[in-house]
Design a protein around this nucleic acid. Structure first.
Lengths: 155, 155
DNA sequence: GCATGTATAGTGTATATACACCTAATAACT
DNA sequence: AGTTATTAGGTGTATATACACTATACATGC
């Protein structure tokens, strides 16, 4: 029997689906994003936007490229993800004085206000996942995810 | 000092970034998708498209909604993700005979051929991550991700 | 058989993601 | 100072994602 026919049979495809790191990561991300989005909906801030606000708050005035590095996000993706936040007046993006190429991302008062209001809802979502998964397991998984980011950067 | 000012200080935001399940999941997904995409590039198939082909192969002719359930993906997202594959002749989507509402997704010969060619590249990417993370840790993380999907479905 | 309810799917719109390519400003070299 | 290399950033295009809404076909009850 030729090996070629075995290169991609049904059983193999089932196994690929069960073992593929990327597929399972994407799947879990879709599922979890829905949970946060549903719970955080009253804040008017989407989960991904929430993380941007948190990072800006944590890093203070920060350049696009530097912020993108921390987010492990393509620079151009970040530029576009900031657009809705700029439009809604939650953040400002203005040229740096020292380096005219660079642009500084800042949290506005309105942005901070919305962030403060969103945090309790984030806590609620986070707590529900934590209670459902178990604290140890969640902490372990986040450590593993951090390791994945480190590994991916080296490959 | 009013508690309100402490609702979202710098330290808190740093902690949120480090502990948020969704943020760390999204970050790891971005990082890992890049790895698979880079390695699988010669196949001409994007990582997410690869997973669709694998699932179609594993499920045989399958309806949109059923396939979306397995992928933990919104039905309308799947419809749109199938478009490029249809356009390139890798899959067909045609009405079912038994139920005129339902539409069956099928893998074409061309689709199978491309899938067979992509599998070795997927294996290469998967193996690199596995070697870097360690097999036990990878298996454990995938089990945790599966648990996340289960938990999210119940919340 | 018909009215109503339910199931299946697509579209409009908005956000999320990244590559290829381009522009402009700074840095480095001579 | 002038030339070149590097760095910071945006745009065009394409895929990925999901909600609200709509259209159609099947199922159920009478």
């Amino acid at each position: 029997m030729p090996v070629k026919n075995l290169n991609c049979d049904l059983q193999m495809c089932q196994e690929i689906g069960q073992t593929c790191a990327m597929f399972n990561l994407r799947k879990a991300t879709r599922a979890l994003t829905q949970v946060y989005e549903e719970i955080m909906k009253p804040s008017g801030i989407l989960p991904n936007q929430f993380t941007l606000l948190v990072v800006i708050r944590a890093m203070g005035p920060v350049a696009i490229t530097r912020m993108a590095e921390v987010l492990v996000m393509d620079r151009t993706t970040l530029t576009r993800n900031l657009k809705p936040l700029e439009r809604d007046g939650l953040v400002t993006v203005k040229p740096s004085r020292h380096d005219k190429r660079s642009r500084e991302v800042n949290l506005t008062k309105k942005g901070l206000k919305h962030l403060v209001q969103a945090v309790p809802l984030w806590r609620e979502a986070q707590q529900k996942i934590r209670a459902s998964l178990g604290g140890n397991r969640l902490d372990r998984m986040i450590a593993d995810l951090t390791a994945v980011v480190g590994s991916a950067a080296m490959i």
